[in-house]
Design a protein around this nucleic acid. Structure first.
Lengths: 263, 263
DNA sequence: GAACGCTGTTCGGCAATACCGAACGGAACC
DNA sequence: GGTTCCGTTCGGTATTGCCGAACAGCGTTC
């Protein structure tokens, strides 16, 4: 996804990075040079040069027998390093582990990117169910508990701005799709301290999240726990909310922030 | 690290990718444009264009107040996706989790890259100790248990080749530094099925690993568990070795490979 | 077996384009 | 105010990455 079409970017670099995305979105067996060249609307020779450069840097690699291009190990290296360098991700890991172990749920944390959640770390629960939850993407705030927990920390005006920017897409019949309903939910979140996503993003999936704060007192992001609706009856949710709030406060402390007092 | 200096690569792309590495290796606060331009031996304007391109694609981002460049969220996105797309990493995760939970140790898996280990996934133990173990890097095979477990699956000739290529660097006084000693250890590994690294990579750190196989019967990689020497007395190691061997066999089965029978 | 289609790869020539240096605008510091 | 960093912008130059054609290696098909 070409996030912004700013001009005066370096063309060959843009092309190379788009090419990485193309391979990442491609099939498991990989893509051939010709397929990539076609998709990129570029000549085979030019594409070949770009591919070789990416392979030399291990961003891509060739599949073993067939000459197909696959994601390379540099991506894993950079992802791991970026995660280790991120103070929020690295400081939160032990707390996430603890929460996941206690609850048996999938735990994630999101950074606050101008009001939008970007999940940067995930710890899968022990169960067989695995949730498809990509990291490193700016997501819609109204369909995840971490996103709503972050929203609740913004001014009402900023929330309105974000809604106008991105809309309120319905992912399920239970998704919040109007501003008044969203604001009502936000108000609830502000008093009790945690947010609930009750099948608003995916059918049968519930998640509960709370915000944490940096040393400026700003909302740095949110932590959430995700599970199946069948595992999480309504009466459990309140108890779990308190538990997650406590863990969010632990992250706040690690970040050197002040824990918010709730009225 | 410019892995290979192959000519006829696209210069601007090479420059951009080296620039990413530079920022990744830089300080936590990030690097300024001028610092980067100096380091890259390039003009500020050219460096600026490259940086803008990388920022637009979220490979890099600007630090909040100061104009400094930091790793961007695309790296986390790509790393997570690459890991999810890797059949070995994704199929092994539940088994790694189980092993880590049972033993309380840090569990890692490495891919077999032409005889060299490349760790692609890590699950930290619950303890406070965290090991510095980067992923996605081709490592020396003789100083890790997973590396030695992979070596043991190669022909003696190939082992000799690898040793000539990369040498036997001493990381600690206990590191194996001569070919005869390495071969003696390899023979032990071949009979008992698991490899032991007894403070050969880092003082006070022990790890135990075993190989797993793909559907061609080839060694696809190795799994290992790492802990402090103080937590792992010698009499525990044999028991743990068997346990890890069992988990390696479970991975083999998931990959559709045949479990090796040991004489 | 030879022709065909498809791969991936290499090479020369042209033109686009990424480089450089200089100049500008802003912030911080003395 | 002066000075010295910073980041940013702009045009001219020539470097360089693009294209198309030609070649080589497989599989299939006739």
């Amino acid at each position: 996804m070409p996030e912004k079409k700013n001009s005066s970017n370096i063309g060959s670099v843009t092309k190379a990075l788009n090419l990485v995305d193309l391979v990442m979105a491609g099939p498991k067996e990989g893509l051939t040079l010709s397929e990539i060249a076609r998709e990129m609307k570029s000549s085979k020779s030019a594409t070949h040069a770009t591919l070789r450069t990416l392979v030399d840097h291990n961003y891509l690699r060739m599949s073993e027998p067939g000459p197909r291009y696959l994601p390379g190990m540099a991506l894993i290296r950079l992802g791991d390093l970026a995660s280790a360098r991120d103070p929020i991700a690295s400081l939160s890991r032990s707390i996430m582990n603890e929460l996941s172990k206690k609850t048996g749920l999938t735990v994630r944390i999101a950074r606050n990117y101008d009001g939008y959640p970007v999940f940067i770390e995930r710890i899968d629960g022990p169960g067989v169910v695995r949730f498809f939850t990509p990291l490193g993407i700016r997501e819609l705030p109204h369909v995840s508990s971490a996103g709503k927990a972050i929203l609740a920390e913004l001014s009402d005006e900023r929330i309105r701005e974000i809604v106008e920017e991105s809309g309120l897409e319905a992912r399920t019949p239970k998704s919040i799709t109007t501003l008044p309903k969203l604001m009502a939910d936000i108000r609830k979140i502000r008093v009790r301290g945690y947010a609930v996503d009750d099948e608003e993003d995916a059918q049968g999936v519930v998640c509960i999240g709370a915000a944490f704060y940096d040393h400026f007192g700003q909302c740095a992001g949110g932590i959430s726990a995700t599970g199946l609706k069948s595992e999480l009856p309504t009466e459990e949710i309140a108890k779990l909310g308190i538990k997650i709030l406590k863990h969010a406060e632990a992250i706040t402390k690690k970040l050197g922030g002040k824990v918010k007092v709730r009225g």
